[in-house]
Amino acid sequence: MTAIGTTTAAGAPRLPGWVRYEVTAFAVVTALGLIGYLVFPFDLALLTRIIAVTFLVLSLDLVTGYAGVVTLGQAAIFGVAAYAVGNACLAGITDPVMLLGVGIIAGALMGLVSGVLISRFSALPQLVISIAFGQLVAALANKLAQFTGGSDGLAGFAPSAVLGVFEFDIFGRTSFGFSLVVLAVVLALLLRFVQSPFGLMCRGIRDDALRARMIGTAVYPRLIVMYGVSGAVAGVGGALSAINVGVVSLHSVSFEMSAEALVMLVVGGAGHLLGAVFGSILFQIFGHFVGSTNPFHWMTIVGGTLILITLFAPKGLYSAFASAMAKFRKSRVSQ
């Protein structure tokens, strides 16, 4: 890694490579958000929803893309965090930042619990356990109506102003701005996290768990911790969803939600946080606009597009884009 405090030839201070990468990612996400705000000023609720779901896809990327754990139960963590935030708000904690903390804690705890169960297994048994875990949580959410509102959903809570200043408005500006800032910050932190020794070893475990054991890595505890971190990220998404929408429905913990998140991750590119972000944004915007322009055949169009993407970019759109950029740079150098 480049040492901190290096200078350019002109003598100007230059940030080390990894900081530049994270600052760039922060700037790109913020810029994308601002473009979204300007281009779709009347669809801020959709953009806010996209950001909340992006956290779910990011959390899935941590366990699936970075640690090799295949799961179809990640929405359970997202949904439980959303319910926790809704209940906390009903109990009198209305500060959005505090509620975000509640979501993070609830998500992390759920992540640890699911990690203990799911990462104990591998391959198909792992997948089955993850589905069973998700279904169990969904069934409980339906039964425990006093905490979840059952099939009616949990409603009737209203968070206070963000930082005591920015009230939530009917146009969704505060929700969008709050969510965008949280996404940019969390993404920058996660980019650092996956490059840490812990993050690198998780990628090593994904590549070859046996080899990781041979160099002294206790694989199972690491995967549980990774699940905890992933749960905290999903918890942020669940919290934002509850804070911004004011309703938590059973869909938040559903199998469909987990499956959609996996599709978004595969489309964007598993094992790349930016791939997860782009996959989530593209899939949801594409689905929304195809659905609104062609309500009769939109699922066919979305399904066909997914097949094409998987055929021509099996490692996801981010990898295809990165590979195309690398070829472009190479051709320019050789000219």
């Binding site: 690198l200 990628r203 994904r206 590549d207 046996l210 080899r211 990781a212 041979m214």
Partner: peptide, 24 residues
């Protein structure tokens, strides 16, 4: 004892298959 524990206790094993992490 588990393999990871043995490694922590001081065994360093370089297997025939090398097994480096390909994506790193």
């Amino acid at each position: 004892r588990k393999t990871s524990r043995r490694a922590m206790m001081g065994l360093g094993y370089v297997p025939q298959t090398r097994d480096i992490f390909q994506s790193l």
